[in-house]
């Protein structure tokens, strides 16, 4: 659990982060969104003390993050950034072994960890381990960057626009991978982005920042249903509201008993995908199946449209 308690950061009298308090639950994905200059990057950099707070405190599992030296704190917290920041003079394996090396892990333990992570990120250890970062594609570099951040098995992973430099197709894949890995390691992830689609796709909770303040902090659906300020409304976008609601709900939740013709849809697909399927194939209903293919009834166009309407 990360408790951010009335944290403020000022640079030469200019307030960048203004009295922010929030509690981030363990094993969740929290996404901090906002325009550039809203203080979102400064906020997460205060968690691992790359930036020192002017006022207030941050506690990790109850322990003040100033109770140990900054560099020791940062070895316990994963940190992944835009443009990956891989060390160009070190191989992929050496890059991933950075923090274990700083912590003085044994060679065997480090090697096992590097292999596990490379495999997890679908990079064949024997092929990719000895390569240098410039020999990888952008997507592969980004994956190695995240693998490096996770190498010392941190409880908390901070990510500063980690997918910002990727093209849309690789980005979607990277987001899927991140969610899978978050489940696998049960890591608490705090991610900064300015991409609302990304935020809605990944977040258990979204914190919206505007001019140094957190103006709203809650589950994605709440932001759509009850935006706290006009800024939040603008950020979500008038024309996007119904689709945002559908994008965060699973098709299974809208399923009802009954029959339908044609290609089925899996229950763990989003309702937005179900709607797209319905419109595109010109049907009124889709059969729904479970993850292992068992029939679960159907989902109708009406049901979806009702769910996309303004909540009353």
């Amino acid at each position: 659990m990360i408790e951010i308690d009335a944290i403020t950061k000022r640079y030469d009298g200019i307030t960048v982060v203004d009295n922010v308090s929030m509690v981030i639950e363990p094993r969740t994905v929290t996404v901090v969104v906002g325009t550039s200059g809203s203080g979102k990057t400064t906020l997460i950099r205060m968690i691992n003390r790359l930036v020192e707070a002017t006022e207030g405190a941050i506690r990790l599992d109850g322990e003040d993050n100033r109770s140990i030296p900054g560099y020791e704190l940062r070895r316990r917290i994963g940190y992944a950034i835009q443009g990956h920041g891989l060390f160009p003079h070190r191989t992929v394996a050496q890059n991933i072994a950075t923090v274990p090396g700083l912590l003085g892990w044994t060679k065997a333990r480090t090697e096992a960890k590097v292999e596990e992570l490379l495999t997890l990120f679908q990079l064949e250890p024997k092929t990719f381990g000895p390569r240098y970062p410039h020999e990888l594609s952008g997507g592969q570099q980004q994956r190695v960057g995240v693998a490096r951040a996770l190498a010392a098995e941190p409880n908390v992973l901070l990510m500063d626009e980690p997918f910002g430099a990727l093209d849309p197709i690789i980005r979607a894949k990277a987001q899927e991978d991140l969610l899978a890995i978050q489940k696998y390691f049960a890591t608490t992830i705090v991610l900064v982005t300015h991409d609302m689609n990304e935020a809605f796709h990944l977040a258990d909770k979204i914190a919206v920042m505007d001019k140094g303040r957190v103006v709203q902090y809650g589950p994605p659906a709440e932001l759509v249903r009850a935006p706290a300020t006009p800024f939040v409304e603008t950020l979500i976008g008038d024309a996007e509201r119904p689709f945002r609601l559908l994008s965060i709900a699973k098709t299974g939740a809208a399923a009802e008993p009954g029959e339908a013709e044609g290609e089925p849809i899996r229950e763990d697909r989003s309702q937005q995908e179900a709607l797209a399927d319905l419109i595109w194939s010109g049907r009124d209903a889709l059969p729904v199946i479970s993850r292992n293919g068992a029939p679960m009834g159907r989902v109708t166009l009406d049901a979806i449209l009702k769910r996309a309407a303004r909540p009353r």
Binding site: Y71, E72, I81, Q82, L102
Partner: peptide, 15 residues
Amino acid sequence: LPRSVMEAARGSGMT
């Protein structure tokens, strides 16, 4: 030096 690399070095806990 590349900013992102220096940032990563600090962020990974190097003194």
